[in-house]
Design a protein around this nucleic acid. Structure first.
Lengths: 143, 143
DNA sequence: GTTGAAAGACACCATCC
DNA sequence: GGATGGTGTCTTTCAAC
């Protein structure tokens, strides 16, 4: 599937507000509702669109501490680590990366004490380096 | 604002699919549509809900290379760096962190050549360490 | 917070360009 | 591939409880 300029415009609008109706989305990109619906359906079925989600302010939601954790997996613990991460609710994402560490994760916590528990909990699977997140630079993502 | 169990359930459903109607969302959390609408509006106006967005498969969208970049800002270039990042479309997020580096960013590129251009473009503002992302561990985020 | 009703918007389909 | 018009459904919103 090759995205054209109209698909890109649709995705950029959905990036800003995914709860828009197909009719309104059509207005935004100067297309009829059926046409825009068809394009969205195609991008969904092809997997360009993986899903629709909500952006949460974790501080206001009761998770005032966020951090990036670099994880270097210990011998033979690779699959156990992945399984454990998948079942951990407070992981926003987990990337397998090149470099000294194997993974980099972003997590949300209710307190510093919770971070300590997390690190201890994973100490047999991975060596970790924790970076507290102070703030976020707002980005205007576009394709 | 203090979130109760129902708010949490609403947010967890919106995390999985933000395009659900208020009526359907009400069914999912065993509430009436007006009640769930009121709660969502409150979370929006209080800022717990920052927005609704789409999850994109960047590889399928023509950006096959993603990477994490650690940026250590050079003397006095802090504001210029932030300004430049804000106007860069391919930055998914940019976190100010504790540790050796000042920021960690996730970016999407069309090619390795584009990464090189990016790094060169920022070389007067920051020292960078680039980590190519090989894959992502799927996480089931919940509050 | 719930229910019920009314108005409106929406998605879908068929048709046509 | 896209636009238009009609139909039925779903949704939102408001009022009363």
């Amino acid at each position: 599937m090759q995205l054209d300029e109209k698909d890109i415009r649709i995705l950029n609008h959905l990036l800003q507000n995914s709860r828009v109706s197909m009719r309104e989305l059509g207005r935004l990109v100067d297309m009829s509702a059926p046409a825009v619906t068809e394009r969205v359906r195609q991008m969904e079925s092809f997997g360009v669109i993986k899903g629709y989600t909500v952006e949460i302010d974790y501080e206001k939601a009761g998770y005032p501490i966020s951090c990036m954790i670099e994880a270097t997996i210990k011998n033979g613990q690779y699959e156990r680590f992945k399984k454990k991460i998948e079942n951990q609710g407070n992981v926003e994402y987990c990337h397998r990366i090149a470099g000294q560490a194997c993974f980099i994760l972003k997590l949300h916590f209710r307190s510093l004490a919770e971070i300590e528990i997390f690190i201890n909990d994973f100490s047999d699977l991975a060596h970790t380096v924790t970076h507290i997140i102070f703030s976020n630079v707002e980005t205007n993502q576009t394709l």
